[in-house]
Structures are given as structure tokens and as C-alpha cells.
């Protein structure tokens, strides 16, 4: 009898600990206050392209500004269809506040206070400066409203439990101070920012462990693609030793490799997005990739 009581007590403590540890975090108050300032939609357009929002949230590459929800993505945990993030008030995020948007980016939490699955690359996006997020929000607000909802994720148990993502975040996403803007005048530092933050290169180029957590010590060394099909390249200075900075710049803007081949798969979409960037930004990315972390 005593043993049973002890077991129940333990189970309750366990459940309590899970509930406490898996709770969605609140948006940093400093970021919340910063998000009240007006954003610059024109600057936000560049953030939009480097972040590649359209790659997942637009149905067609021919209409990248219609963010009504994208095509189904395959992941090792099951299929997920990126949601409607157009400014439609009913089906999109038209009714979200700037702070709710920032919470999705920095905390991976939606407007209802639920954890978002990290198929949405907030593990990278949370490194974005508040100025960039504010500008991106201003830009997204002006895009076409699109109707329609995406189906819920088809993850199997236990990966379908949103609360469990809270534990995942504790394992892989240490708390960060609000990220500061990085000056574009320092190309290597700015390139690092673009690669690690909005560009979210590591989402495909950094290997993951069995729980889908990025293996930090192997950052950018190339990985199995999240879809399970194919491999991404090693884009550390070792992996790119036969590539010059200008080779990288050409590949990122035209898709053409030094061998005369072209980048296919998901990188073709990345190239389409990056072709909207100023030359200096592409140069910064190339400088950083050659210089290394």
C-alpha cells in the first residue's frame, strides 16, 4: 500500500516536472518592447528572401509572395505541411500582434501559446536581430491575403505531443540574450549572422542526432537531408577547400558549380531566393564560409 502511494507520488512529481519543464517560454520583455517600433518593409523584403519563407510557406515557386501554406514536407518523424502565414485574418496570421510573431521566431511558440515543431527553423531564426524581425513583420503584413488552412502534422506518437517540444528546446536551445544587429561593414561577421540566423543553412547542412537535435560540434559539415533523400554538402572551409569565394558567390546566385554542374534539389530554391539579395550580402556569406566559425 505504501509502495503504491509512493509510486503515485513519484508519477505526480514526474508529471509535474514534465509540465513545468515543457512550458512554452514567454517573449523576452526587451524584444517585446522593441517590436512596438515601426518596421521598414523595404528592408524586410531582403530579410524575407534570405530567410527563404516562400520555400516552405508558398505553394508554388512561381508565386512566392502567396504564403497560404506550402507543400507537405517529409521529416523523419512524419509529414508536416507548413501553415498559412499570409496576412489573411482568418486563415493566416493577419490577426497576430508583432509580439506574437516575434514569439514564433524567438521562442518557437504560436499565438495560442503552443510549441511549434522545429520543422519551422526557429533554432536558427532566433539568432536574428530584432530589427530584422521587425522589418520582416512589416513586409509580411503587406503581402497578399490567401485563404485556406494546412492539414495538421502527421507525426506519430510521441512526436505529435507539442508539450514534448518544450523538453526538446531545453536540450538543444540554450537561452539567448536578445540578439544584436550585426554591422554589414564587417563581411565575415555579417556573413556568419546571415548563415546562422536568417539563412538557416545549418537546418540542412548540420547533422542531427536521433531526436532531430543539431550536433553543434559538427555544424555545417553536411548531413542527411531532413526528407531522408540525399545529402547536403559539407560547407565548412574543409568541405569547400576546392571552392574560391567567387565560386561560392556564383553558385549562390546562378546555381552553377565550379565544375559546370548545377545545384539541384532544395538548393535550387535557395538560389532562387538568394538571387534577390544585394551582392554585398552574397559576398559576406562567401567570406564567412571560407573563413569558418
Amino acid at each position: 500500500m505504501k509502495a503504491l502511494a509512493a509510486l503515485i507520488a513519484l508519477a505526480l512529481i514526474g508529471a509535474g516536472a514534465f509540465w513545468f519543464l515543457s512550458a512554452p517560454s514567454r517573449l523576452d520583455p526587451q524584444i517585446a518592447a522593441e517590436m512596438d517600433k515601426p518596421g521598414d518593409a523595404r528592408a524586410g523584403e531582403i530579410v524575407f528572401w534570405v530567410s527563404g519563407c516562400a520555400a516552405c510557406h508558398a505553394k508554388s515557386a512561381d508565386e512566392p509572395l502567396k504564403l497560404g501554406g506550402g507543400k507537405e514536407l517529409e521529416t523523419p518523424f512524419g509529414p508536416i505541411t507548413p501553415p498559412n502565414i499570409s496576412p489573411d485574418p482568418d486563415d493566416g496570421i493577419g490577426n497576430w500582434s508583432a509580439q506574437a510573431f516575434a514569439r514564433a521566431i524567438y521562442d518557437g511558440v504560436n499565438e495560442e501559446g503552443e510549441h511549434l515543431f522545429p520543422a519551422f527553423p526557429y533554432p536558427s531564426y532566433r539568432h536574428m536581430s530584432v530589427a530584422d524581425v521587425r522589418d520582416l513583420w512589416a513586409y509580411l503584413r503587406g503581402l497578399p491575403k490567401v485563404r485556406g488552412l494546412s492539414p495538421p502534422p502527421g507525426f506519430g506518437f510521441p512526436f505529435n505531443i507539442r508539450r514534448a517540444v518544450g523538453i526538446w528546446k531545453r536540450l538543444y536551445l540554450p537561452r539567448l540574450a536578445p540578439p544584436e544587429a550585426v554591422a554589414a561593414a564587417d563581411p565575415i561577421a555579417y556573413g556568419r549572422y546571415l548563415v546562422q540566423g536568417p539563412g538557416h543553412c545549418g537546418e540542412c547542412h548540420t547533422p542531427r542526432d536521433f531526436l532531430g537535435g543539431p550536433i553543434a560540434s559538427k555544424a555545417l559539415t553536411g548531413a542527411k537531408m531532413p526528407s531522408g533523400k540525399g545529402k547536403s554538402h559539407d560547407i565548412t572551409p574543409t568541405g569547400l577547400k576546392d571552392w574560391s569565394e567567387s565560386d561560392i558567390e556564383l553558385a549562390l546566385t546562378t546555381g552553377i558549380t565550379p565544375e559546370g554542374d548545377s545545384l539541384g534539389g532544395a538548393m535550387a530554391e535557395v538560389v532562387r531566393n538568394l538571387s534577390h539579395l544585394p551582392k554585398e550580402d552574397i559576398h559576406a556569406i562567401a567570406r564567412y564560409l571560407k573563413a569558418g566559425p
Binding site: 537531408m225 533523400k229 540525399g230 545529402k231 546566385t253 546562378t254 546555381g255 552553377i256 554542374d261 548545377s262 545545384l263 539541384g264 534539389g265 532544395a266 538548393m267 535550387a268 530554391e269 538560389v271 532562387r272
Partner: peptide, 18 residues
């Protein structure tokens, strides 16, 4: 450059990944 975009456009959809 724009002509070469055609290479990637096709490889994106129709060529197996590495």
C-alpha cells in the same frame, strides 16, 4: 546567368539528390 537558371530549375525536380 539567367539561361543557366534553367539547369537548376530542372535538376530541382527531376534529378535524384546525392
Amino acid at each position: 546567368g539567367p539561361v543557366l537558371k534553367n539547369c537548376g530549375g530542372c535538376h530541382e525536380l527531376y534529378r535524384a539528390k546525392e
